[in-house]
Every structure is written in C-alpha cells, then in structure tokens.
Simulated assay, not measured.
Amino acid sequence: MNTEATTPKAEFTQRFTSTRRSARLARHLAVHQPDGWGIPYGSDVSDEAAQIVAELAANAITHGRVPGRDFELHLRLMEASLRIEVSDTRGEREPAPGASAPDAETGRGLLRVAALAKDWGASGRPVGKTIWAELAWPEPLSRSVAVPRHAPAEPAPRSR
C-alpha cells in the first residue's frame, strides 16, 4: 500500500453551530488554514476551496440541520490535493446534484461542487453523512508542510 498517497501532510477539523454565521466562518477558515500550509490565499485552489465550503456548509445548515446539532469542517492536505469534508447530522438525505427548474433560485450547489472538484462524493457516518470534495493543484507541495508565512514575531525580552 502506498502510504504517501493516503497519509495527510496536515489536517484541520472544526465544529460549528448550524447557523449562517458559522457557514461564513467555515468558508473563511477554509482559505486561511491552507494558506498557512503553502496554498496561497487568492490562488485558484484557495478560491475553489472557498466556493466548495460555501456550498457544502450552506447545504449542511439548510438541508442537514438537526436542531441542537453541529456541522463539521475537516480539511486534509495531501501530496497533490486538498480534501474538503463537511459533515452534518442528517443521514437520511442523500446528496444528489440535479437539474433545477430554470427559474429556481436554489438547487445548483452540488453541480458547482462537481464542476470545481477533481472528485467528490458522500459517505455515511454513525450519525449523519459527510460530503467530500478533492481539489488538485498543478505542482505538488514540497515533502514537508510549508511553514506559515505569517509566523509570530519573537517576544520582546522582559525588562526587570
């Protein structure tokens, strides 16, 4: 088994309350966390990750919401891809991208995810489901995870 292809270089997981504000925060974290891993903010991959998380988080709070239960964002940095997972607590609703009525205001989110991701799908979990998408970039990152570009400054020496 090739462990390099399946072993994450870095991971990030955060739970959120099922609110619009939390969906916005999830999208924000989905671009800033990878920036620290070497995927530049504002790059194509960063922008695509933001769009995918926006769609999946919106679906989680709209269609996957169970009162009093959270949704979860999980980012996994692989050698040549970024895997995005959004989990909710409603397992009986299977995701299905489909054609909406031409004048419908909703119903195209998973079509957007399918268009942006190199691969995507859904998997069950003990409570709920996980929708995942993978984004690739042209050049794999170096073997080690990049050091955050915005490293904190050294603390000033304390005077006595």
Rank of each mutant, 00 (worst) to 15 (best):
V31P: 02
G128L: 01
E94N: 11
W37Q: 05
R149P: 03
A136R: 12
A54N: 11
K118R: 09
W137A: 02
S142E: 11
R160M: 08
L77T: 01
L110Y: 13
A133T: 05
M78T: 04
R83L: 10
I52S: 00
A117W: 03
I84K: 15
F71R: 07
T13D: 07
D35H: 15
E105D: 08
A58N: 15
M1G: 15
D70K: 02
L135G: 03
M78K: 10
S87G: 09
E85F: 08
L75I: 11
I131P: 02
V53K: 04
S100A: 15
A136Y: 02
A80L: 08
H150E: 10
F16S: 06
V53S: 03
G109S: 05
V127P: 00
W120C: 14
G36V: 04
L29W: 10
E4L: 15
G109E: 01
N2P: 15
S87R: 13
W132F: 09
A117T: 02
D70P: 02
S22I: 07
W37I: 04
A153K: 12
M78L: 15
P140Y: 06
A104M: 09
W132H: 07
P140W: 03
H32R: 13
T19F: 00
V66T: 13
A58I: 06
V113E: 00
A23G: 14
V31W: 01
L29C: 02
T7W: 02
A153R: 11
G36D: 10
E134M: 09
R93P: 03
S81Q: 13
G36I: 03
